[in-house]
Amino acid sequence: MAPLRHVIFFLIPLLFFFPPSLSATTVLPVSLTQLTEKADTIVAGVVQESQAYWDEGRIYTDITIETMEFLKHPTPDRPTVIVVRTLGGQVDDMRMEVHGVPRLKVDDEVILFLKKDDQAYTIFGLYYGLCRIETDPLDATQRVSGPLFRARTTQSLNTKALRLNPLPPQGEGLDAFFQRVRDLLPPSDETRNP
């Protein structure tokens, strides 16, 4: 329990300085540093398909991602396809709507900060670990954006302090974002210099 008490000790004072944004799902904004450190896998890919199903009174949706580039991964293997489990979805005419949980559709291009437990990958922080990649149809340049960019302030994992979010609110170029993530990875991480 000591680690948990540690977390509570730091988080409660943080609520005074930066109470969370309210949502039907309420999440404390996290920093890119924190996301990069806590995520087991950081991967860019394309949504290939989604499959919703019931499990213990909830609807989950498994999102199949065709992986394009790994920025972080715990093992040397690089699966070409991974399945991400998200809370909510639709089976027949029944929907389980979880405000704030991202809905992904086929051909969406994304960068995901994932946790891995037992069999399934999940998106860290429900939606903070999802970035979308949008391509300019005119010049094919690609930009990354998402909730991670738009949080006004973020929480530093290392200092427990709050700081202004250094990410540009409207997103940034794909290469610049990749480099930003790689710069946060330990030098020993093999994905730092692919």
Binding site: L11, R58, L87, D93, M94, M96, V98, H99
Partner: peptide, 30 residues
Amino acid sequence: NNMIGEGILAISTTWTQGSGTSYRAVESDI
């Protein structure tokens, strides 16, 4: 919910049925 350390304070979920004009909420948990 296997969400330890993710900073999630609350989850609110609403189940709905139907679409269009028949779209209705049928259950909600917080």
